[in-house]
Write a protein that binds this DNA or RNA. Structure first.
Lengths: 140, 140
DNA sequence: TAAATTGATTGTATAATACAATTACATACT
DNA sequence: AGTATGTAATTGTATTATACAATCAATTTA
């Protein structure tokens, strides 16, 4: 196995994470943080879900998702649909505002990434996407 | 330009960052967090440096690096070398313990990544490393 | 030598997370 | 039916990484 490649990945991942961590904390393009964004996206793509399901999918603690969901509800980006079979449970659905905010935020992110990668070839961009996806899937 | 590839990168980056953020906060393989690790590594590879230089290289606030350096000094992983020309300044060098800890930690990280990527081809690993590096460089 | 600048630290705030305790409801067991 | 156990969600508390502002001490400049 090619140790050099692994070392390179190991280092560059550390750098990437640290870099983007600080960017997200200071800058904050729109009104959404990364986690909020992923929640809205998930709901838009796969439909309403409760905090437990979301927490499992994201591999986060339920309490973490609960707070994020509460914040999103408070901003009127999500609303609750009570579970008819279980008085404790509910699921979360996008409001119209949430849908709009999601779309705006996604556009901003996309724009930023497009700028960052403007000198890349199409081939490189495609491969980078594929490999990132594959990497994320290795975690599951 | 291939919008689909960009969208994929955009999404997978968000996922990657969130995932690794939570891993580093809960798990913590060894005694080092990511930033501490990058500092030690930088010093090992490029020699002693003061907090200002490190902060610039890492694009972090000086105060952040100052605290990290203080923590590493406290653990006896780094020691200060006073600047002979400027009574305020100093640079940081690895202690023997720091060198050892760095090497152990790096091994652990490498091991973990090796496991994660064990099903990948050499070619894929190599490309992923190269593209991550290129991506990180786009930030500069 | 007084004023401005600079390297570093410290105070304070924020954000994302986890774990533990709690609340309120649901299910299962005699 | 009633108690015990389990479960969805929230809330309290702690930690970690970060930034920005204030400060301290030394240096440089006018």
């Amino acid at each position: 196995m090619d140790v050099h490649a692994l070392e390179m990945i190991e280092l560059e991942l550390a750098i990437l994470i640290r870099r983007t961590t600080s960017i997200s904390s200071n800058k904050k393009f729109g009104n959404l943080d990364r986690s909020a964004y992923l929640i809205l996206r998930r709901i838009k793509e796969k439909g309403a879900a409760g905090v437990k399901v979301l927490a499992e999918e994201f591999k986060l603690d339920i309490s973490t998702v609960s707070r994020q969901a509460a914040a999103l509800e408070h901003k009127d980006y999500l609303y609750r649909i009570p579970d008819p079979l279980d008085g404790r449970a509910y699921s979360l659905q996008l409001t119209e505002q949430g849908t709009k905010e999601l779309s705006d935020y996604k556009q901003e992110r996309l724009k930023r990434i497009t700028e960052l990668l403007e000198d890349w070839s199409d081939e490189e961009r495609k491969l980078f996407g594929v490999l990132l996806e594959k990497f994320n899937q290795s975690f599951n």
